[in-house]
Amino acid sequence: MMTTIDIPNFRMSPVVDQVGVEERVARFTTRSIKKSSKLQALKLALNMIDLTTLEGKDTSGKVKQMCYKAAHMCDQLQDIPTVAAVCVYPNHVRTAKTALTGTGIKVASVATAFPSGNTTREVKLSDVRFAVDEGADEIDMVISRGEFLEGNYSFVFDEISSIKEVCGSSRLKVILETGELSTLDNIRRASDIAIYAGADFIKTSTGKIQPAATMPVTLVMLQAIKDYYYKTGKIVGMKPAGGISSSKLAIHYLVMVHETLGDKWLTNEWFRFGASSLANDILMQIAKEKYGTYQGKDYFSND
């Protein structure tokens, strides 16, 4: 059976009331997650992390160390899942891919002139093509925020869909860089553009701009995902990135995903945290649940 998906007029994207969003978020943060449900959430959150290094000083040595950590989060504790992926620049994809062979951990690569995205379409496409050829399972692209703020929505749409084509079987995460979009209405609109243009995931931030991920921003993006799912039955993933460094906050995010989109999104196939320091905080909490004592940082390896 043939169905068509109408591409909406993005100028007519649903409006968002910021105060209402904040109030909804406040409700998620008052959920009290204890005992078994907490342990389950901690492991789930750990398994959803994209362990990330995106620095000018990245070297293959650093990337290898991080990859080892990704596969051996804390060997002293039993039943600890791995993270979902590591996220690196394109020139470190091959290193990471090799280091993670056999672990099941994905390699994600930022591309498209990350983090500003200010270059030509040609350069962006070849950036993506290179990362894919190097073996990246996932591509984290940035949208052209300048074009978006000028109102050139079809430019932004076309750019995403052309990059999606180049991705082939690699999954595409589209970074909106919400910290530069100013309003929740803009964030909703950018989410709609990315989703309809073919994003497998939408992602809040590069981590290079403040504010990075926030719960209100993430909620608006989740609602865009939900509306698309209602219309098409297609699942789009969500990745808040940057600024999520505590287990408590990560659990708040999980509650939010859980009560907005439900069980189907509670897997690292459809939800990720872009974070690095979060992992050890989660491990400390898991250890606390196991041993009953509060933990110290020196007891958890930092790569």
Partner: peptide
């Protein structure tokens, strides 16, 4: 244009993760 069956658009809550 895409081909698909009538899509499943149902959501489920509180099956996989219950709050203690």
């Amino acid at each position: 244009t895409k081909t698909s069956e009538q899509p499943d658009t149902s959501l489920n809550f509180f099956n996989d993760w219950k709050y203690a």
